[in-house]
Design a binder for these strands. Structure first.
Lengths: 229, 229
DNA sequence: AATGATTTAGACTCATCAGTCTAGTTTGAT
DNA sequence: ATCAAACTAGACTGATGAGTCTAAATCATT
């Protein structure tokens, strides 16, 4: 990649970060910064925040420890930024799945099963499990992590899903009075069974098993919210 | 309490622990042991495993640090035992709720809503959130915690619930083919919405809100599994 | 009262690790 | 080619905390 292109990425991220958080603008070269964030997330996810050493992150990022401190100031900020970046990434994938929820005239069951399956795939992604683990783990002493993930990830996906369900209801494909309540039930049905089945993220699920969970979830959902119930 | 009574408790716990884990028998006086376990869980839950100091646990238990080591050998064992004890306690409460699920001839909706509400109350207990947080947090580097909680807590409650649902189905109050699948859907509907609503355990839910979640869950559940669907 | 096990306060060792500092090297832009 | 900013290796400090040890005190039992 040429220097010009890096600049574009750099400027893009800077303005986004500035708008959203008002934090001091990141300094230093962008490729290093990205590498550090990725390494930090991996190491934190693998070892836990307290057990992870900044030296270790630096080593995995192929960077000197001082560079980490030059970019992020301290370990806590590094965690926050790594989590925020990872959450952003995961959200994008989730939104892409929700976007497929458009009425194409066919049986809504098939459509919902497809989108449900895709959402389950997102949820079962290794990084996704790691993100939730990290969040749960550090929530007690870094309560502001919640805001990062809830506002910038979870709430956005729910909002998008509610919008799509509302449109399907308006088109007569579903019988929904409160789209938010419907989303609440749907996402519970989709993700609830995964905790136990995937053994809280320690076991990989086969595509078949994920499909099965999606089918069961949509079946129950349609009994409650389908138009020809 | 008299010394005799302590002996009884002591022996009881020893044999149970020996059967289940094969760990070395606990030594020392039982009241101290209990106090340490309770304090350890509190401190670990409040600060996280790595951030918690054994000195801190000892202080909160009103005990010398050496006593902690005399009872549990090291910090990791202390965590395991504290989690196991807490999980046992939580399971007992859950099972008590499930036990109320008996056909009394009336509308099954009311019955299910009552039991659902009670299960939600258990789930939203401060200690219950702390337990899940701790579990999630340390699962990555102590995988055997999963077995403790899954086998001795989660699975037992699901089993009991499946049994009760099967009896209701047999009595014609529900239309269920696979009780395990029904339990999976039901518990997803009951607990799924709580994560977001309780902001992952950082916010206390009102009884009214818990009731509302229970009502919505049972409503959806009965659309799918009620006999006069 | 005697005894053996348990508990206690607190000092102590040793390892780990966040964060700093230094002195020299690389890099990108002009 | 030059310059300033970014990067590097690695030594260093200071704090924290797990686990041990000791000598005295307390407890339960006989």
């Amino acid at each position: 990649m040429s220097p010009k292109q890096w600049e574009v990425v750099y400027a893009g991220r800077m303005s986004a970060a500035a708008k959203q958080t008002g934090r001091a603008a990141p300094r230093g070269r962008m490729d290093k910064r990205q590498a550090i964030l990725a390494a930090a997330f991996d190491v934190f996810a693998r070892r836990g925040y307290a057990q992870a050493g900044v030296d270790e992150v630096a080593a995995e990022a192929g960077v000197a420890k001082a560079t980490v401190y030059n970019h992020f100031g301290d370990k806590e900020t590094l965690l926050r930024e790594a989590i925020a970046a990872s959450a952003e990434e995961a959200t994008a994938k989730n939104l892409a799945a929700v976007e497929r929820l458009v009425d194409s005239g066919g049986d809504p069951r098939e459509l919902l099963e497809d989108v449900g399956f895709r959402l389950i795939q997102c949820y079962c992604d290794e990084q996704s499990w790691a993100l939730r683990r990290l969040l749960y783990a550090e929530l007690a002493h870094l309560p502001d992590l919640l805001e990062i993930v809830q506002v910038r990830a979870s709430a956005r996906v729910r909002q998008a899903l509610a919008d799509r369900l509302a449109r399907l209801a308006l088109a007569g494909r579903l019988r929904i009075t409160d789209p938010d309540a419907a989303v609440e039930q749907l996402s519970a049905l989709l993700t609830g069974p995964l905790e136990a089945r995937a053994e809280w993220g320690t076991r990989r699920l086969s595509a078949a098993e994920m499909r099965q969970v999606a089918t069961a979830a949509i079946d129950t959902f349609l009994h409650a919210f389908g138009s020809r119930a």
